[in-house]
């Protein structure tokens, strides 16, 4: 599988990246949290962002759909493009941007609504469905893609919060898929889940690969190795190393990467 991924990598090298971050700096007040990061995300592949906690990987991820806008003290410098368009440009609408760049959070956060309404929430606010049948179709498709349909099809009206942790997280993924995004950002999506639920979500990520450009923050190196084709190693706000997952894990170029992967710190 790793081999396949690296072959894919050489094939797509010439293609334009889906998202491209160039020299991105993030400050929280005076705290320089992310330092001059340049990174590309491609359609058809999963990029894992790894590194010790507090290294800036989550902060960087939240720049990609401008969720950092909601933090008053946060300031972002540099250029991030989606299909070549600067997402911090004034003519870019943050509402549309977030619909195109979906996000799944660390802790499953289903709305206190029914399963159906959770998934239908995005399509409804964006007006993606003209009729009730359309909406039903979108909801069932999203749930199917998230691998949750068979488990919940009989109880779409029961509250989303009543599901198990793993199911809730897949519901959140379904919710993100329902607005038909192009990129999906996942911020440690499995850290609150047990191993079985984690395996299911990882399998789901593998399924989704190919249709969406996916960036996943994880502190589990095994997970990064399992689900990603590219890996970026962050440390103290720096992007230390970025490349094929196989390469990073088998032949890291940087001392710090090697230390981290072999468990010397982190």
């Amino acid at each position: 599988m790793y081999k396949m991924a690296s072959e894919l990598e050489t094939m797509t090298e010439t293609r334009k990246p889906k998202m491209l971050a160039e020299n991105v700096n993030v400050f929280y007040g005076t705290n320089h949290a992310v330092k001059g990061i340049t990174l590309d995300l491609h359609q058809d592949e999963v990029t894992a962002l790894i590194g010790p906690s507090g290294c800036g990987k989550s902060t960087f991820l939240r720049c990609l759909n401008r969720m950092n806008d909601t933090v008053a003290s946060c300031r972002v410098e540099g250029r991030i493009t989606l299909d070549g368009e600067d997402i911090y440009a004034s003519r870019i609408d943050v509402v549309q941007l977030r619909a195109r760049v979906g996000m799944v959070f660390q802790k499953p956060n289903p709305f206190p609504k029914s399963i159906y309404d959770n998934v239908a929430y995005g399509p409804r606010i964006h007006g993606l469905a003209q009729t009730r049948t359309d909406l039903d179709e979108i909801v069932s498709t999203a749930l199917e893609k998230a691998g949750l349909w068979n488990e919940v099809k009989d109880r779409l009206e029961s509250p989303g919060t009543a599901l198990s942790g793993g199911q809730q997280q897949r519901l959140c993924i379904a919710r993100a898929i329902a607005v038909n995004p192009e990129v999906i950002l996942m911020d440690e999506p499995c850290s609150a889940l047990d191993p079985i639920a984690t395996a299911k979500v990882e399998a789901l990520i593998d399924e989704l690969k190919g249709r969406y450009a996916i960036a996943i923050v994880t502190h589990s190196m095994q997970q990064a190795a399992r689900v990603s084709q590219k890996t970026a190693f962050f440390h103290m706000g720096d992007l230390v190393e970025h490349g094929d997952t196989t390469e990073i894990f088998t032949a890291p170029k940087q001392e710090r990467t090697r230390d981290y992967i072999t468990g010397r710190f982190g």
């Binding site: 289903p110 995005g122 606010i125």
Partner: peptide, 25 residues
């Protein structure tokens, strides 16, 4: 805050988030 973030990340405006997620919660 995670509920609010969840809604904003789906591309809801703040008022949509407030009316449809925060207030019901």
């Amino acid at each position: 805050k995670s509920l609010k973030d969840g809604s904003l990340a789906l591309g809801a405006t703040p008022s949509e988030t407030i009316k449809q997620v925060v207030l019901p919660a």
